[in-house]
Amino acid sequence: MIGIRQKERVYLSLVYITITAWLTILFFALLPQKVNRVTNVIVFFVTSIVDINKLTLNISTFSLIKPIVTYSHWLALVVYRDITMSIILLIFVNVYFTTQAKRGKWGITILTFFLLLAGSQVLRAYNIIQYTGWTIYYEIICIAALIGITLLTARITTRLDGGKTI
């Protein structure tokens, strides 16, 4: 049995995660310059495949992460995984490929890294997930790999069809 205070905390976590998702969509929509639509869609697809599998392998196969199974937590996890995380990576790709300055490219890479790391720790703080064998160091490696995969996918996609994608 969980108390009213705990219940409120569970519902509030969903509210905060949903607002964060809305904000990322807003930032993405308001970006002044974007790479082409096809690149955005392919990057979204590839990051979704990687991220969904990473989370499910950790939860289900290796039992390194334990989800707390209430409907609010489940919804918060799905919203974070399918919307917030993927759109943060899309914002990263769009800024990275439309910025000429190296400082700007490094800046958005570091910002994306810390945003994703903060996101994963917010899920922990709100008890949406619990680390049982997983650690923050593994998370850091995974986020770095995800950023690398995102960049590689975007680079390959922009060169498909001789760079004439819409």
């Binding site: 979704s48 495949i49 989800p67 199974v69």
Partner: peptide, 27 residues
């Protein structure tokens, strides 16, 4: 073209994963 092919090959995989890992997980 390559992009049309890649998008449509990936679409089914992503949709399958999203639905399976949303409605086929607890709760």
């Amino acid at each position: 073209s390559s992009t049309v092919t890649v998008v449509n090959l990936l679409y089914g995989v992503v949709i399958g994963l999203v639905f399976d890992h949303t409605i086929a997980i607890e709760p």
